[in-house]
């Protein structure tokens, strides 16, 4: 079974699950209409050639779950930090603009890395390319935390994907 066929099947299942979750209808007419629209969308995306371009990160599922746990902890602690800075009187922030080396080799990992930097309040990824990430951070502490590379190490990456 080729990669494309496998991917088409998983896309169909996912889309139909989404349709069913959003509608919650059981009768035959609606179910068949749902299946028809799912198949139509899969056919369209096949024709539009989007399936092969984007790798499905299925091999990373377990790592991704662990990463999400890590990320939610980070987001919560960063939130508390920023809220404290909002309510602390006087000079409460020390904005920094700095560059981080890009350690990731695949596009997907780069996107996840940059998006998680932006997602944690207190640090925003301003510019990203193959070599470096430019980050604006609200405080020196969060900048140092990013420089330590904790976030970069936590981002999952599949080395078997070809480098881009």
């Amino acid at each position: 079974m080729s990669y494309t066929v496998k991917h088409n099947i998983s896309l169909t299942v996912l889309l139909f699950a989404l349709w069913f979750g959003l509608s919650g209808l059981f009768d035959v007419l609606m179910l068949s209409l749902g299946i028809a629209s799912t198949l139509l969308v899969v056919y369209f995306s096949y024709r539009m050639d989007t399936i092969d371009r984007q790798k499905h990160p299925a091999r990373l599922t377990l790592q991704l779950l662990r990463f999400w746990l890590f990320l939610s902890r980070e987001v919560i602690s960063a939130n508390i930090d920023v809220v404290r800075r909002i309510f602390r009187p006087g000079k409460n922030i020390s904005p920094q603009l700095f560059q981080l080396p890009m350690t990731k080799k695949t596009d997907l990992a780069r996107v996840i890395y940059a998006n998680s930097i932006t997602l944690t309040p207190g640090t925003v990824c301003v510019k990203v390319n193959r070599k470096a990430i430019t980050v604006h951070s609200l405080s020196k502490e969060s900048a140092d935390d990013l420089r330590s590379g904790r976030m970069a190490d936590a981002v999952p990456e599949d080395e078997r994907d070809e480098e881009t």
Partner: peptide, 26 residues
């Protein structure tokens, strides 16, 4: 509300991004 106050307390555009980050995430 903290995020809403944050976008008024922080001095420039880039630091306000972080205040909006609170309302968007947690």
């Amino acid at each position: 509300i903290a995020g809403g106050i944050g976008i008024h307390r922080f001095p420039d555009f880039y630091s306000r991004l972080h205040a909006v980050g609170i309302t968007d995430t947690m």
